[in-house]
Design a protein around this nucleic acid. Structure first.
Lengths: 254, 254
DNA sequence: CGTTCACTTGACTTGGCTCAATTCAAGTGG
DNA sequence: CCACTTGAATTGAGCCAAGTCAAGTGAACG
């Protein structure tokens, strides 16, 4: 799996060094959330600064100095790492509740970019130690994320290209994505999903190439398993059948 | 990367269902550590139960019910997941300080087996919320582990077989293993390392086959980069040269 | 001034060839 | 006997190179 560094990946690293500041969405224009108001939505609340990002905005880069941690309130964010020669791996795709931005050092160990318009709460790392409630919330989410990484490790280490794509598509189905497929899920038959990622990003998340991603999706379409309305809007014709293609549907009874 | 499920992997899953209880090392024969003594070694201390394992003992299996979390005090433990057809992925290799055993559900999301004789402290999950100090410690370690998983994701998703092996060997070098290669490390030249894992386990950790692992090591030996004293005792002739083979040695200056 | 058409651009798809890593099959040695 | 090594054959996924498609952009025209 050598994977020649693709030029567009390189571009991201070389030419988007500074965040893409969209008018009215500057990541610097922050809103101080009511420091002592009751929790906004049951998540972390004390002393956090709320920040809004447009989609496709670089939030920070690997190596940037930092003393903060982030919790995603709404939206979707990807964390990625680059190898010196430009190979990229998207290491996590985060959703509401997920936390990010920590590293054992004073610099970020990976880069973060929003996939869609997103809202985060930012804290100083030091605040964590002071607020048990905050720590509690971070702790719970980070545990779940570590488990998700375990699942992703088996995907990257052992699954075939088709199994990876099927797993990825299942991730995007509301009820299922995360963990053990909730067998009697609300969405049994066909479901439309929105990917919010380009083929390139999907490839870099799943450890594949853009062409392999495209080919697998085409094969699924040919087989009638999915319909591709627009590149990032896909209709899964039978969710449980898709689940069976993931290679890990041990528990699903249907 | 389909990877035919190897028969021995299957055996582990099917025939070692119950922990291998070695005489005098039963995981059930636990020692209640002084509940209010000063911290044993700077790690978590309140209300934890200390447990000792011999090497090669299954600590728990994926799917086992649980309400505990573990912190490894000393030794080495691997966490792994199996696919229904027997493919295995070792998702983490843990060392002193690392925590494990959590999952979003009431059952373990992966299996744990000791690589060498090990000591753990076990807590009830509920204890976490009660003890800020405990939570603090767990939190710090889990953050580091998540970052290590990020590194492992790039290994599994983007590195070549040789880069994976080199990365793995570097992990085993005391000063280096974890994060960014500490350039002016104590051990510059040759270093002996002990793997504590079979070729099979290394393969399942790195997303390769046993033969590929063996071939890469042989190639490194032929090149004079390493000497293989015994299968799991390896001499790295030039640590910094090895580091350069990992594909991610951006910072190392030597 | 709005419509049309040629052109550009970027993302995606498809085909053909290649090769790294797997698979299969013997060994080898402690 | 089991773990590991080695060789030979196979193949899944990568790499290269076109080709398709949709969405602009802009100059020309009625």
């Amino acid at each position: 799996m050598p994977m020649k560094p693709s030029p567009s990946t390189q571009d991201t690293a070389l030419f988007q060094r500074s965040p893409v500041l969209l008018p009215g969405h500057s990541p610097l224009r922050t809103t101080r959330s009511a420091a002592r108001s009751s929790a906004t939505n049951g998540e972390i609340e004390p002393a956090g600064r709320e920040i809004h990002f447009a989609g496709r905005v670089i939030i920070f880069l690997e190596g940037d100095e930092t003393d903060s941690i982030y919790q995603l309130v709404d939206g979707a964010i990807m964390l990625y790492k680059l190898m010196p020669d430009g190979r990229r791996q998207i290491v996590e795709v985060l959703h509401a509740g997920d936390v990010f931005g920590f590293s054992p050092a004073a610099v970020h160990e990976c880069s973060a970019e929003s996939l869609v318009a997103s809202t985060c709460i930012v804290f100083k790392r030091a605040d964590l130690a002071r607020s048990p409630a905050l720590m509690q919330s971070v702790n719970e989410h980070i545990q779940t994320q570590l488990c998700a990484m375990h699942d992703h490790a088996i995907l990257l280490g052992r699954k075939t290209a088709m199994e990876r794509i099927a797993t990825f598509l299942m991730r995007c189905v509301p009820g299922r994505g995360g963990y053990h497929c909730l067998a009697p899920a609300p969405s049994l038959e066909r479901t439309g999903i929105r990917l919010n990622m380009t083929r390139h990003e999907i490839a870099d998340f799943l450890g594949l190439t853009i062409e392999t991603v495209s080919r697998c999706l085409s094969k699924l379409k040919r087989r009638g398993a999915i319909a591709i309305d627009r590149p990032d809007e896909i209709l899964i014709n039978d969710v449980c059948r898709m689940c069976r293609l993931t290679g890990t549907e041990a528990t699903c009874q249907r």
